[in-house]
Design a protein around this nucleic acid. Structure first.
Lengths: 215, 215
DNA sequence: ACCGGACCCAAACCAAAGTTTCGATAAACC
DNA sequence: GGTTTATCGAAACTTTGGTTTGGGTCCGGT
């Protein structure tokens, strides 16, 4: 149930290794896509389902560790299972610090790989769930006009309409209108809802959270 | 500034190693307390300031890795820097997965240890800051009466006073009084404040978040 | 028996939030 | 030129939120 329709990408320049990993994971029910290089992998594009990357460290063109860090820099957040035939402790530490789910020295037992991959998939599954929620919220937030966003930032900070009005040099009635639009567009059922949405979106007025009450 | 008054605990059964680590860290400005065994360490008690633990893996009585996991189980959250003379990759993975800040194979360069320790102290410093805030909130929350807590749970969920009243079989005016007490006791300046406090305290009415509107 | 605290409620307010209806200007777009 | 959209505001409400004042019961501790 956890395994069905989950995708595993493999990057290893050893064709034999690719083949055996492919058959192992495929027989377990995963959707497997093997590559011989990081370039091929990047050219392929990622599927929109729970995935993970089984990455060999020693590659011809680019070190697997370097590639892992590059993925992080480029905000490609796929769980990585590292493997290597000639690893040492500093490499392991580096890989784990960079967020690898596991680090398997070759040769490894099949169960070790399956366990690591299962955990990686589970990690990606929950990340996707969380990101999905945030994505909907971001989309709604983007539908707000600049003024509405400004009002939202001040409202979720706890300011009253009149304080927002004073800070933005508006009449209170205008603030109420913007505020109403925010509630409607964000589909918030209550102020408590809106505050929690703002927490997820990391929205807050910087001039207020840093100080107490500047004005 | 980061180093002053930070405490480093060392557990290593090799007296020579303890001595050299002690002098290295002490000369850097840390407050160092060395131990030869995990028992000694546990008997000593932890200081209430930014701290970390430099832990050798190969000990007579108890493995450092086991001890690290025991600390986690017993909820003793101190950042751990692991070191070992005879480490392998599986041990490294296990230590890093258990949350070690770093894993240093002996012999290591002084700068490596200092860098790992500095990062561990910084980790503990921010954890203490976050925990401190949560602690204050928990204390305030405990000062609430059962009814007040109940009202708070429903209010931060987004319910209006009259809805809270209906759900608790109270008059709206009573809800308002409880709600006012909650705001005062929790020292919340606004509803938005209270919602954020509830998020930190992980408070919410279970009968509401699970279903829509049971009644 | 007395006191304090938790709990409950009503009347009478006042302040804040929210809505609708009526405008109005200015910029962007076709 | 006409349309849309964002922006701003007034008047006239209704609904919530919040406080104060003044009651009341019940229970546990002294």
């Amino acid at each position: 149930m956890t395994t069905e329709s989950a995708r595993i990408y493999i990057i290893d320049d050893d064709a034999e290794m690719r083949g055996s990993l492919d058959s192992l994971l495929r027989s377990t029910g995963y959707d497997v896509v093997p590559f011989a290089s990081t370039r091929e992998f990047l050219g392929h594009g990622l599927a929109d389902k729970p995935s993970c990357l089984v990455l060999d460290i020693r590659l011809q063109a680019e070190s697997g560790l370097d590639f892992q860090e590059r993925l992080a820099r480029e905000n490609i957040r796929i769980p990585v299972v590292l493997m290597t035939g000639h690893g040492d402790i500093p490499m392991t530490v580096r890989g784990m610090k960079a967020g690898a789910v596991d680090f398997l020295p070759k040769p490894f037992r099949e169960e070790e790989m399956l366990s690591a991959v299962a955990q990686a998939i589970e990690t990606d599954r929950s990340r996707r769930a969380a990101d999905g929620n945030a994505g909907v919220l971001r989309q709604r937030y983007e539908s707000l006009t600049p003024r509405e966003r400004e009002v939202m930032g001040l409202v979720v900070t706890g300011l009253m309409n009149k304080q927002v009005a004073g800070r933005m040099n508006l009449s209170e009635i205008t603030v109420k209108i913007h505020r109403g639009n925010v509630m409607r567009k964000m589909e918030a059922q209550s102020l408590a809802d809106l505050v929690r949405m703002a927490e997820v979106l990391a929205i807050r007025d910087t001039s207020i959270t840093r100080f107490g009450s500047p004005d």
